[in-house]
Design a binder for these strands. Sequence first.
DNA 1: ACATTTATGTCAGCCATGTTGACTTTTTTC
DNA 2: GAAAAAAGTCAACATGGCTGACATAAATGT
Lengths: 216, 216
Amino acid sequence: MADINVSASSRPAKGDPGVPARSGGLGEGDPLVDVIELFFFAYRNFVSDPDEILQGIGFGRAHHRVLHFVNRHPGMRVTDLLDILRITKQSLGRVLRELVDQGFIDSRAGASDRRQRLLHLTPKGEALAQQFVTLQSHRIRRALEECGPDSRETARRFLVAMIDPEDRGPVEKLIARADQQAEAKTSGASGKASPPAGGSLGATGNRPAPLVRPAG
Amino acid sequence: MADINVSASSRPAKGDPGVPARSGGLGEGDPLVDVIELFFFAYRNFVSDPDEILQGIGFGRAHHRVLHFVNRHPGMRVTDLLDILRITKQSLGRVLRELVDQGFIDSRAGASDRRQRLLHLTPKGEALAQQFVTLQSHRIRRALEECGPDSRETARRFLVAMIDPEDRGPVEKLIARADQQAEAKTSGASGKASPPAGGSLGATGNRPAPLVRPAG
DNA sequence: ACATTTATGTCAGCCATGTTGACTTTTTTC
DNA sequence: GAAAAAAGTCAACATGGCTGACATAAATGT
């Protein structure tokens, strides 16, 4: 409440730019560089939160990302994960193998389509993923509290608007779907070792909609 | 103005959380996971902007970061860069050598302390750095415009608040110092091949204050 | 004057995580 | 039964972190 001194570096907001919008008038000399750098420093701190834990078990950020999204989308296919992470099958395969071998992720053949490997977290994996979410949520919560009551929606809107327009829809759907599933799970049965009830993703039919980006 | 559909995934704001703040009541089941993920997707897009250009000249993101901060702090020392980037001398040395060899960065011995190598961008380097700033500023400007007139300060405050408390001061000072220098430069002489007037960093004496973090 | 510290650079090697390309197996779909 | 899809694998390579060990030049302290 008394630590934020943002205006220390900001020029007088909008009037009197000193230099009259040099060469083009769009995004060159304007003080948006500060936001570029704040984004860099903020994200670096943000991702460094889980690093300590990860290092203790010989994992890296790639493992974190996989754990996170499998946690959010229990029963997801490998292809779904590839669509979200946008890395190659080989890169994913490396970390996924370690996570399965060490008992953090459970990979079972799909019931309806036995080519698929449906990914679930083991209790061990869930505990770890929950640790990460808790850590990073603390940081976000603290930040939002310092920014006042309305900051949450503004921050959300800002982050969404920073995403490529063609990705926004899929990303928001992805988040919405995960939220719905989590809600259904907690309001339903006591919720452990969830049955693959009704095709855990997509749920529209045999071919669940891609989580992110239909094609590249 | 009509494209943002943030509320598609958000539960009814604050009341009726569905699950009554399970196990601890702080940052576990609360819908802050969406912000975690939005931050991930937003930052991925954000850093991918310059990638296309970088790939064309055989550079990577490490080169981008070096170019950016040398651009913002002309005449900075190698140590300053290390403090900001928080990587090892060896890692920095690799990309710095390439940037100097290929004529993007000029590395001159300091006048008062000839051990120092003061880093400046060449015109070629400046042009490239400016390209990156323009690209990323476009994204930010677009995002802020979509979020309304007050979003800029909120976004700034949010990003600052996401930074580790002990880093905020140094980071804000860093940004303020760069802004001041840029201002002085544009308002001063016609502004080319700037003289090392008055010790380009710190300016308090022989030992300029560290840009970020006095001690690792 | 000499010892120490500081700023920088460099060699060598390792690790994590991304990439491409080629190929296999299993299963589903047409 | 052919083609396509889901997954996995091997090999090789690139980027960009890391550690450890040194080397050199210049400033600083005694």
